[in-house]
Write a protein that binds this DNA or RNA. Sequence first.
DNA 1: GCTTGACCCCTACGTAGCGTGAGGCCGTAG
DNA 2: CTACGGCCTCACGCTACGTAGGGGTCAAGC
Lengths: 251, 251
Amino acid sequence: MAANRYQVKALAELSGVTVRALHHYDAIGLLCPHQRTAAGYRLYTETDLLRLQQILIYRELGLPLEQIKAIITDPAFDPESALVEQRSRLAAHARQTQAMIRAVDAALDSLRGEKPMNANNIFEGFDPKRYEDEARANWGSSDAYKESSRRTKNYSSEDWARIKSESHDLMVRIAAHLTGGGKPSDTAAMDLAEEHRLQIDRFYYPCSLAMHRGLGQMYTGDARFEANLDKYGGGVAAFLAEAIAANADRG
Amino acid sequence: MAANRYQVKALAELSGVTVRALHHYDAIGLLCPHQRTAAGYRLYTETDLLRLQQILIYRELGLPLEQIKAIITDPAFDPESALVEQRSRLAAHARQTQAMIRAVDAALDSLRGEKPMNANNIFEGFDPKRYEDEARANWGSSDAYKESSRRTKNYSSEDWARIKSESHDLMVRIAAHLTGGGKPSDTAAMDLAEEHRLQIDRFYYPCSLAMHRGLGQMYTGDARFEANLDKYGGGVAAFLAEAIAANADRG
DNA sequence: GCTTGACCCCTACGTAGCGTGAGGCCGTAG
DNA sequence: CTACGGCCTCACGCTACGTAGGGGTCAAGC
C-alpha cells in the first residue's frame, strides 16, 4: 500500500478549507504536515487527513483552535470516543437549529397577527447555554430514524439478527404490559423503558436519560416512528413515550 | 398598552447576547436603541427586540453584520418573506449538520475497521459549497460562489438597494410578459432571459449561457427558489426557466 | 538548456466581531 | 452621604484567518 502524500492545495480541495488556513494550522501547531520536501513543500498523509477532519468537526462546533489542539494532542485522546462525543454535540447543534426554526415560525405567526408577540419566548432557542442540557437530550430531527437504520446496515448479519430479535422481544413485552392493563408510570413499565434505553445505548449510540426522553417525544411526534411502534399494537408508541418520560423523571 | 422599555442588560438577558455586543451593534448602526435617557442610557423597545431577533437569525447563518444591516435596512425589506427565506436557510443548515453527522459516522466506521477509509468521501458534508443540494442553492460551482461572495462583500447598502430594485423591475416585466400571453420561446422572452443573465453577470459572478441554463433548472427544481420567484405570479419560475433554456439554445 | 506556468514558500499587515479592562457618571436604597 | 450596581465611552487585545507581495520549485514543452 503506497502511502499517499498530498500537497497543500490537494488537501485544501479535498477538505474544503483554504490553503491559508492549512498554513495557519501548521503555524500554530494544530496540524503540521507529516513531512516536508527538501524545498520545504508540505506533504500531508492520510493520518493528517483524519486529524484535519477531527479539527473541522470541533471547529464547526465553535471551539477555539487552541482548545482543539489541546484536545486532540492529549495523549489520552481517544478518537473513537471523541467522535461519538462529537456526534452527540452535532446532534445538539442540529436540535438548536430546529429550535430556531420554531422561533422563526413563532415570529411569523406573530407577524401574521395570529398570536401576540411575547418578549419572553421570542428568543427561545437563541441562547445555546440556556439549552445545553435539553439540546443534548434530543437526537435531532426525523432524520434520526434514517440515520439509525443506515448504521444498522453496517452490523454483520449476525449482529443484525441479534439486535432485531432483542428489540422485537422487548417491544412485545412492552405491548403485553400495555394490553395487560399496565400504566406507563408503573415501576415495571419504567423498567421496560430503562431496558429500552440500554438497548439503544448498546446498539446504536450512548443514550443518556435525557437523550432518551427526547427520543420518546419523537416517538409520538414523528408519524413514521409512531407507525413503526404501533405495529406491536395500537397506542404502543404513546405508551412507550410516557414510560420513557416517567423513567427519566425517576432517574 | 404601555410601551415597555428595556435597558441593555435586560435585553442582553432576554436575548442571550452580551451587553458588549449590543453596544457594538449600536456603534455600527445595526441596532440603535429607539431612545436614550438624558443620561445616555440605552432604551430598547419591542420593535428593537424584533429587529434583534432578525439580526440573530442572520448572524447564526453566518452573514457578516454589514450585510445583515444592508438587508434589514433595505426599504424594500419585507419581514415576512425574509423570515420565510431564513426558515429555509435554517433548514438547509440543519441538513448540513446532518451530513456532518454522517461524515462522523463514516469516520467511526473506518476507525472500527468496518470500511476502508476513503479520502474522497471522508470530508463529505464539510464543505457547504460541495454539498450538492446546497452547492446549487449557492449558485453553482465553487468558483462562481467565491466570485460572488468576493464581490457582494463590498457592496454598500445603496448598491444592494439598486440591485434589488433592478432585479425586481426585471421580474415584474417577465411576469407581465407571461400574463400578457407570451411564450417562453418568444424572442421577447428570450431577450428578457438574456437580460436576466446579464444582471447576474454584472452583480454577482461571470455567468455563461451554460451556467445560466443550470440556474434556470434550479429555479424549478428547488422549492425555495420557486417560491421566491412565484411571488411575482404563479408559474413565473417555470416560465423563466423555459425562457432561459430557449435563450441558451439560441446562443 | 531555457522559458513558462502552476505550484509552493514565508513575511506581514488588515479585518470582523466582539472580550476585557479603565475611568467615570447615574440612581436608588440605607 | 455613601455605598453599590448599572450605565457610559474610550481603547487596546484577540482569534482565525484574508490578502498582498516578493520570491523559490518543478514538470512540460520548445
